[in-house]
Design a binder for these strands. Structure first.
Lengths: 139, 139
DNA sequence: AATTAAACGCAATTTAGTTGCGTTAATGTT
DNA sequence: AACATTAACGCAACTAAATTGCGTTTAATT
């Protein structure tokens, strides 16, 4: 079992009611979240600005990362333990469901290592997949 | 030399002053364009709605395609000849420059074929690279 | 208990993108 | 060349995501 308050402190963040609940939300989903989804399911009543700012610092501290979304919306998902404020590591593929618009991290599929090409200096690469997720297939 | 008016007619589009200029813009860049960039550099004075609608049909007809952008903005780039209104073919990687925010198609790097995994039905995949483009490296 | 800075909440604003609708003009037909 | 059709346009108004400013609250430190 993960210790939410410890995680917050380890990242130099204060344990407010909202941030504890937000971080717990991320640990409880295997998918990703948008600001809208967060506002809808959060219990501690919170302003959207607070949500935006919390996501901002969570990302800066290496707790969460942005994931691509079908409709160019910003989604966030939990990082793996390798991430920190210095460096984000996401060598897995992301999957976007065409029917429910959910975004999932597919840790089984690795992003291929890409060589620099044509004078481009490649620093990171991401592999984004689209299709139907298991839940939407069976319904 | 490409015949802009012919391309428009072949795709069932009328050759208006604006659309000729817009399509020419795409043929004259090896990168990609945003609505903002288009509005800034277009000569024929045009409403933004017209730009949005032109991009919409251009995409539908298989002339251009959306490319990912660092800040979740919508960018567009010219398609290769294989694309049509029936099917878009983009098996190459896209590169986003961290410094100028430009997006480039890297046709030398192919998107790896990905197998379905963990109950996900994968229909398409894209490979997005980030780093520094040749122009920004040498300046 | 006092201090201080992170976190919050409200209002207002910015920006991307969309919708509705009346007008203009490119194209095909007589 | 005149006419009819409809794609394309332009303006206004609107929606939704995200940001900024600023005063207040509260968690953590002393």
């Amino acid at each position: 079992m993960i210790n939410i308050e410890l995680v917050l402190r380890e990242h130099g963040l204060r344990k407010t009611t909202f941030r504890k609940e937000l971080l717990t939300m991320f640990y409880n989903t295997n998918s990703s979240l948008t600001v809208e989804e967060i506002l809808k399911s959060i219990i501690s009543k919170t302003d959207k600005v607070t949500v935006y700012r919390a996501l901002e610092v969570f990302e800066k501290k290496g707790l969460i990362h942005k994931v691509p979304d079908k409709n160019n919306l910003t989604r966030y998902a939990l990082c793996n333990n390798e991430c920190s404020s210095e460096k984000h590591v996401h060598n897995h593929a992301h999957f976007i469901c065409n029917s429910c618009n959910g975004t999932f991290c597919i840790k089984d599929i690795e992003v291929p290592a890409v060589q620099n090409a044509q004078g481009f200096l490649i620093k990171s690469s991401k592999l984004t997949l689209e299709g139907d997720c298991p839940v939407c297939i069976s319904s």
